[in-house]
Nucleic acid binder design. Structure first.
Lengths: 202, 202
DNA sequence: CCACCATGTCTACGAGTGTAGACTCATGTC
DNA sequence: GACATGAGTCTACACTCGTAGACATGGTGG
C-alpha cells in the first residue's frame, strides 16, 4: 500500500484544520526556501503536506498570501543575528560562516529571500518582512549615527556572502573553511557595528 | 501604420542574420536583467527584437544557451570594478554607490545575477561567467594571502548592497545618498583590498 | 439516530511555457 | 529569368501554472 507518497502516513492527521494549516505552512517554507517564489508550485507545496492544491488556496487565499505567511514564519526566529550588542560582530560572523558551510542546508530566511527576490511581488513582501522582523531589531542594537543604514549594510554583507557561498557557489568562497571566513567577516562587521566613524566636526 | 510594435521599424533590417542575432542577444540581456531567467520568456525576448520566438531557438539552440550568451555579454565589460589596483576601493565604492542610485537603472550584470540565481541551471551558468570574466581579473588585482577568497568576498559585498538597495529596496539603504554610501563602502572594501591581515607567525 | 457543517477532494478552465516541424518568401547566382 | 539557399514565420504539441466551482466525507450536537 504505497498509495500516499508523503505527509502524515495517510492516517495520523485527519480532519484537523489547525494541524493541516500548519503542515501546509511548513511545507511552503521548505519549498520557497529551496526553489524560490516562482520556482515552487502550489501543487508541490500541497503534495509535501499531504493535501490537495485547492486546500492551500482555501486556507491561505492565494499563493501570494501563502508566501507572505511563509516569509513571516521564516523571518520570525532570530537565528543569525543575536541579541547581545557587544558580541554582535563575533556571534553573527560565526553564525554566518557556520550556516553557509557546504554540509549545512537549513531553512534560512536568507536563502528564501535570495531565491524569491526576482519576483517583484515577492520582493515587496520580503522587504516588509525584513522591516518588521530583523531590520528594526538590528537597528536597535546599534548605536551612533546612521544606525538604520548600517544595520541594512550589515544585512547586505550577510546576504551577499550567503548568495556567493551557497547559491552561486563561487569556488573559493564555497570551499573556505569556517574559521577563516568568520575572522574576515568579524572584522568587516566590526567596522559597521562598533565604531560609528561619523563626520568629524568642523 | 502601427503594425509592428517594436524593433527596427519593420523595414530597416531585413534578412540580415548577424544584425538579427545581435538584436536578439541585446533584447535577451535586457529581459533577463529586468525579470530574471525564469521571469523572462522566449516570446518576450523575440518580440522586443522584432522577430518570432522560433528564430531565437534557431539561432541560440535553447533558452539556456541564449542565457549563457547573455551572461557572457553582460559580464564582459568591466563597468564596476576598475583596472587600477591602487584606487580599487575608491573607484569601486563610488561605482557601486552611483549605479545603485534610485534614478539609475542600467543593465548591470549584478541585477542579472540577482534575479536569475534562483534557478539552479542559471546559477551554474552565472558561476562560470563570474569565474571567467570578473573573478580571475579581480583576484589578479589583489596581492597577499587568500586573494581569490578576498576577491569573492568583495563581490559578495557588492552583490549584497545591490540586492538590498535595488531589488529588495530596503528603505534606509535605498534612500541613502551616494556620498555617504561610498564612504562606508570604501572603508569596508579597503579592509579586503589593502592590508592582507595574514596570520601572525608563531 | 440523524442531520449539519466544516474539512477535504475532483474535475476543469484559461493562460502561458519551451520547443519541434513544416511552411513561405526574399535574395543572389547561373 | 529560373532556381537553389538561407532568413523568417505559422501552427501546433505537450506540459505546467494558479485558481474556481461542484462534489464527497467525516466528526459531532440535537
Amino acid at each position: 500500500m504505497v498509495e500516499d507518497t508523503r505527509g502524515p502516513a495517510d492516517g495520523s492527521r485527519r480532519r484537523d484544520a489547525g494541524a493541516t494549516r500548519e503542515a501546509i505552512l511548513i511545507s511552503a517554507v521548505e519549498a520557497f526556501t529551496r526553489a524560490g517564489y516562482d520556482g515552487a508550485g502550489v501543487r508541490e507545496v500541497a503534495g509535501n503536506a499531504g493535501v490537495t492544491a485547492m486546500l492551500v488556496n482555501r486556507y491561505f487565499g492565494s499563493k501570494e498570501q501563502l508566501f507572505a505567511e511563509a516569509v513571516d514564519r521564516s523571518f520570525a526566529p532570530r537565528t543569525v543575528v543575536g541579541d547581545d550588542p557587544d558580541a554582535l560582530s563575533e556571534q553573527t560572523a560565526k553564525a554566518v560562516a557556520r550556516r553557509t558551510a557546504p554540509y549545512a542546508d537549513d531553512l534560512d530566511p536568507f536563502l528564501l529571500m535570495l531565491r524569491s527576490a526576482a519576483n517583484p511581488r515577492a520582493a515587496e513582501i520580503i522587504r516588509a518582512g525584513i522591516e518588521r522582523h530583523v531590520g528594526g531589531h538590528l537597528t536597535g542594537l546599534l548605536s551612533g549615527t546612521d544606525a538604520e543604514a548600517r544595520a541594512e549594510l550589515l544585512l547586505s554583507l550577510i546576504a551577499g556572502v550567503w548568495l556567493m557561498r551557497k547559491v552561486v557557489a563561487t569556488p573559493a568562497l564555497a570551499g573556505m573553511d569556517e574559521e577563516s571566513l568568520a575572522v574576515r567577516l568579524r572584522e568587516l562587521m566590526r567596522m559597521l557595528v562598533d565604531p560609528p566613524p561619523d563626520g568629524a566636526g568642523p
